[in-house]
């Protein structure tokens, strides 16, 4: 017998939502609002972001902190709904900057200093979910 919460599960509606906190340690400026920053690509020890224009220049040193929104199941009774979970803290150098227009830049960061376990965790979080999605698609359409 199927229970109601198996049919209609609130967890199914939750998505990983990343928050990117960007600080330019060379110019001592930062982008405080994580909604303005987006992590687009992950490479072999490099990250590509979409950021507001003029936030940095080539060779600048940066500090990036990546967190994610907590799920309901991860929050205690005293936790706020906007509680964030730390994922990765990276010190890096700006490798490449591309002007995308509309005051947005594509910035490639070469990651210089970070925790390997956190890095692997972040990669696995997405690679395992990608693999699950591919399996699900194969099963659904087969």
């Amino acid at each position: 017998m199927i229970k109601a919460d198996e049919v209609f599960n609130a967890n199914d509606f939750e998505s990983i939502r990343l928050h990117i906190y960007f600080s330019n340690t060379t110019t001592r400026t930062e982008i405080r609002d994580p909604k303005k920053n987006e992590l687009v690509e992950i490479g072999d020890k490099w990250l590509v972001f979409e950021l507001p224009s003029k936030c940095c220049a080539k060779q600048h040193s940066v500090l990036i902190e990546i967190t994610r929104s907590s799920k309901k199941s991860e929050r205690g009774p005293k936790d706020k709904p906007d509680k964030e979970i730390d994922l990765l803290s990276v010190t890096g150098k700006v490798h490449h900057v591309q002007d995308l227009g509309e005051d947005r830049w594509r910035v490639t960061i070469e990651c210089v200093q970070f925790d390997e376990t956190e890095w692997t965790s972040l990669l696995n979080m997405y690679s395992s979910r990608q693999a699950e999605i591919e399996q699900f698609f194969a099963a659904v359409k087969g």
Partner: peptide
């Protein structure tokens, strides 16, 4: 993901992507 699969799309790629 389920909605996309129901629509019979060809693939679903997550961002940030490699």
């Amino acid at each position: 993901v389920a909605r996309a699969a129901e629509e019979d799309i060809d693939a679903y790629i997550l961002k940030p992507f490699t």
